[in-house]
């Protein structure tokens, strides 16, 4: 009961954090409030749930902090968008891993649907974010990449993902769920490859919203209300934010959303 209360307080902190981040005056305070809510949620989860492996969990958290703090502190201001993409990607991967680990052959249908969604969206957000990172970091070209048979390949990956998703729902096979993870990774890449230059930050924002939805779906898998609330908040606000960013930059959102299906090999962009 007290754990639920702590989760409620954390959810309110996240809500106020988003509210604060929307106004210049309270943006910084909002971010700090969000961090405070996160500390509360994580400590609660640890006290409530770390029945076994407590020491290992602490080690993994310490390692994560040791990696993340210097990376976030030392990154150049101009390189921040790709850093955000990277942080978003690992969040998506974490959601997919949680659903994979929690899936032991079966469960009720709604549970399986939530698992399939978490794995597919989480892994897609992970690989897509890695590609956007590579683009902004100029590890690869920032221009739209359109493979000769890109459209056919994209449609193929979507079709395979759908078939695998239905197959997992029908058979509850762990092997098929792993195959779906791979399909999700390919889906993320196919989605982001045709996005070029100025559209990349908008794609990152959209992937951010997707990761939020993956986290919300993982909340169903674990029957945890905080994950559902926080994930949905990010999913919804992220979707709206993506639209506003696209509008502010004067870029049509459809280019990004359906680039994988409409882009042709010979592309002229203004």
């Amino acid at each position: 009961m007290s754990a639920q209360l702590a989760y409620l307080v954390a959810a309110l902190c996240f809500l106020l954090a988003l509210k604060g981040l929307s106004t210049p005056r309270f943006a910084r305070a909002g971010n700090l409030l969000g961090a405070a809510g996160m500390v509360l949620a994580v400590v609660t989860a640890f006290v409530q749930g770390a029945v076994h492996n407590g020491l290992w969990i602490l080690v993994a958290i310490a390692l994560g902090a040791v990696v993340a703090v210097p990376a976030a502190r030392s990154v150049k201001m101009t390189a921040i968008p790709q850093m955000v993409a990277l942080f978003n990607g690992v969040g998506g991967a974490a959601a997919a891993l949680v659903a994979l680990a929690e899936f032991h052959d079966g469960g009720p249908l709604l549970f399986r649907i939530a698992t399939v969604l978490t794995v597919l969206i989480g892994s897609g957000s992970f690989s897509g974010s890695l590609v956007t990172f590579a683009k902004l970091q100029e590890i690869m070209t920032t221009r739209p990449v359109v493979l000769p048979a890109g459209r056919v390949l994209s449609i193929g990956v979507v079709a395979v993902s759908l078939v695998l998703a239905v197959a997992v729902l029908a058979t509850s096979s762990t092997a098929l769920l792993v195959a779906l993870t791979v399909a999700g990774l390919l889906l993320g890449i196919a989605f982001v490859l045709p996005v070029g230059g100025a559209d990349v930050p908008i794609a990152i924002s959209l992937l951010n919203a997707f990761t939020g939805l993956a986290v919300a779906a993982s909340g169903y898998v674990l029957a945890n209300t905080l994950l559902i609330v926080a994930g949905t908040l990010v999913g919804a606000s992220g979707t709206l934010l993506t639209r506003m960013m696209a509008q502010a930059m004067g870029r049509p959102l459809t280019n990004i959303l359906f680039g994988a299906f409409t882009a042709t090999a010979v592309q002229v962009r203004g």
Binding site: A45, A50, L233
Partner: peptide, 30 residues
């Protein structure tokens, strides 16, 4: 939201979906 806050808001929302850490701790603990 004002336009200059688009990127910080995206980044803040990004941090919030890291709440998946709660789920990760719960499954590892069990």
């Amino acid at each position: 939201v004002s336009t200059i806050l688009h990127t910080p808001l995206m980044s803040g929302a990004n941090a919030i979906h890291g709440v998946i850490l709660v789920g990760a701790i719960l499954i590892t603990g069990a």
